[in-house]
Amino acid sequence: MTAVTPKPAATTPTAKMIRMLGAVSLACGLLIVGTNLLTFNRIRSNTEVIMKESIAELLPSIDKQVVYRIEANGELTILHGLEGEGQRLFAGFDAAGKFLGVVLEANGRGYADVIVAMYAYAPESKTITGFKVVEMHETPGLGDRIGSDPQFAENFKALDTSHAIAAVKHGTKKSPWEIDALSGATISSRAVGRMLQKSIEELGPVVTKNLDRIKKGN
């Protein structure tokens, strides 16, 4: 780039360089930590807003929801409010109090980074009835279409989970448990299939086991 000084007599002492780099790193670190602390609560409440919106989109006629935390032993604990760590399960009810289905979280490694998604699951028919990406860093314009492509979303109107879910090459979907991959975004599409399969394997039995309780919303 710019002309390097021709004289080899670079007289900056090593200690000074180390001091300067140390100071810059420290300042940068403090800046990042400070911003993180300042924005932490806002980011968290924003994420909750996205989650609420996602649930409303996945179960359109939802009027009331009950949030459970899934404990390590497969039991459920009711949570008040959306906050809290750990795996969550959202049970949705319409205005008449009719049980609509549950919303579960799934995550898995995509092409660029972890994809976090939510999906609606109808426990009686064991089908996935909706899918929504909450957070991802897939390639803009290619992989990120898993969150926006209407044709891809068609896959999740009634996705059978009684058989292992798998993404297949674009245009070759034959069975109700297959996901028609996006052309140009095969890796991201496969990642969606994998993360749904993993999540349903783990959480499906929990839902089935606690179904009576979930349906009553207690």
Binding site: M17, L21, S25, I32
Partner: peptide
């Protein structure tokens, strides 16, 4: 910033701005 370590400094600053 001493000339010899300027690139490292720039990269730290750029990465910090992006994260912020």
């Amino acid at each position: 910033v001493p000339k010899q370590v300027r690139i490292a400094t720039y990269i730290a600053i750029i990465a910090t701005s992006v994260t912020v």
